[in-house]
C-alpha cells in the first residue's frame, strides 16, 4: 500500500472512530431525586411490613443494589424501609448487609473522605442489634459512630424471612451527641441529602452491589403522596397493581463504580460516558501525533 493511501486510510479510520465516539457520548445525568413524603400512616419499627404501613409513599425498586426502598417523614424524623433478597453471590450468610449512605457534601463517589465524611446506616444479622451507624472518611473500613465518640441516631429493626431481608428504620431530625458532619443537621432544614444504597457481604467485602453518591438525592416534602403522581426529576413508572415504582438508572452509574472526584472514594473510567471520553481523548492524541509526525517529516525533506 502506498504511503498516501496509508495516510488516507489512517485518517479515515481515526475520523470515523472520533465521530462515533462524539456522537454516542451523552451528558452525565443529574442526581435522581427520591422524595420523602409526609407520612399518613404510622410505622412500627419491627422489621415487618404491616398492611398499609408503607402504602403512603412510593416503593422504589432500586436496580443497582437490588433493594426495594421507601422513605417518608413524620415531622420529627425520617422513616425508611429497606428490602432485599438473599443471593448466593453477594448475600448468603449472617454476614450479609444492606443499608444506606448519606452525605450533604458533593461526594460523588462512595465512602466519603476525611474532609467530607459520610454516615452509613447498615443493617445486618452480624450486628447484635441488627444495625449500626458508621462514619466513613474514605477508609476501607469505616468507624462506628461510637468508636468516634458519638451516638447512633437511628432506631432500626431487621427481620429475615424466607431469604428476604426487611429493615425498618427511624432517624430523628433532632440529633443527640451526633457528629458535626452528620448530614441530618442540615437535612431538617430542607436541604437535599446525597444518598446511596448497598447490599453485600461483610465476610467477603468484594461481593457487593452499591450505588454511588452521584446517583440519588433525598428530599423532604411536606406534601402527602398521591399514589401514581410523582415529583421525582427523572423517569419513574408506577405499577398500579403492585404499587411498585421503578426508577430508571442514570447513565453515569453502574453496579460497582463511582464517577468520583474524590481520590479515595470513586474511580473514573468504568462507565460508558468515561469510556467515550477515554476513546475521544485517545483519538485526539493519536490524530495530533499522526499529524505531527507527518508535518515533522515533511519539514525534513529538502525538495529538489
Amino acid at each position: 500500500m502506498s504511503q498516501k493511501r496509508r495516510l488516507i486510510l489512517l485518517a479515515a479510520l481515526l475520523s470515523g472512530l472520533l465521530a462515533v465516539s462524539l456522537g454516542a457520548a451523552q451528558p452525565v445525568s443529574a442526581l435522581t431525586t427520591i422524595t420523602a413524603y409526609k407520612a399518613q400512616t404510622p410505622v412500627s419499627i419491627d422489621g415487618v411490613v404491616s398492611q398499609g404501613e408503607w402504602s403512603d409513599t412510593p416503593l422504589i425498586a432500586e436496580s443497582t443494589s437490588g433493594m426495594n426502598v421507601a422513605f417518608k417523614q413524620n415531622g420529627t424524623g425520617l422513616l425508611f424501609l429497606l428490602e432485599w433478597q438473599q443471593s448466593s453471590s453477594y448475600c448468603y450468610d449472617k454476614w450479609c448487609f444492606g443499608g444506606i449512605e448519606i452525605a450533604n457534601s458533593s461526594n460523588y463517589g462512595e465512602m466519603g473522605s476525611a474532609s467530607t465524611p459520610t454516615i452509613m446506616i447498615l443493617l445486618s444479622t452480624a450486628f447484635q442489634s441488627g444495625y449500626d451507624e458508621f462514619i466513613s472518611t474514605g477508609d476501607t473500613t469505616p468507624a462506628s459512630v461510637e468508636q468516634s465518640g458519638y451516638a447512633t441516631q437511628s432506631v432500626c429493626s431487621l427481620v429475615v424471612s424466607n431469604g428476604t431481608y426487611t429493615g425498618e428504620c427511624y432517624r430523628p431530625f433532632h440529633l443527640t451527641n451526633a457528629s458535626a458532619n452528620d448530614p441530618f443537621t442540615a437535612f431538617a432544614s430542607g436541604t437535599p441529602l446525597e444518598i446511596a444504597f448497598a447490599v453485600g457481604e461483610f465476610s467477603s467485602p468484594g461481593q457487593h452491589l452499591a450505588t454511588d453518591m452521584a446517583t440519588y438525592s433525598l428530599i423532604l416534602s411536606n406534601q402527602t403522596y398521591s399514589g401514581a403522581s410523582s415529583t421525582t426529576t427523572t423517569t419513574q413508572s408506577s405499577n398500579p397493581t403492585t404499587g411498585v415504582t421503578t426508577t430508571s438508572q442514570p447513565s453515569n452509574t453502574n453496579t460497582q463504580s463511582g464517577s468520583g472526584s474524590d481520590l479515595l472514594a470513586g474511580f473514573p473510567g468504568l462507565n460508558l460516558v468515561t469510556l467515550y471520553i477515554f476513546a475521544g481523548v485517545a483519538l485526539a492524541i493519536g490524530i495530533l501525533l499522526g499529524i505531527g509526525v507527518a508535518l515533522r517529516a515533511r519539514k525534513l525533506v529538502v525538495r529538489k
Binding site: 504511503q3 496509508r6 472526584s261 473514573p268 471520553i277 492524541i285 493519536g286
Partner: peptide, 29 residues
C-alpha cells in the same frame, strides 16, 4: 515508509496510555 507498523503501534499505544493517564490526572488530581 513513514507510517510503518512500528510507528502506528507507537502512536496508538502512546495515545491509549496517555488518555488513561490524562483521565486519571484530570479526575483524581
Amino acid at each position: 515508509r513513514l507510517f510503518t507498523g512500528r510507528v502506528i503501534g507507537s502512536i496508538v499505544t502512546f495515545s491509549l496510555i496517555s488518555s488513561i493517564c490524562l483521565i486519571w490526572l484530570v479526575t483524581l488530581v
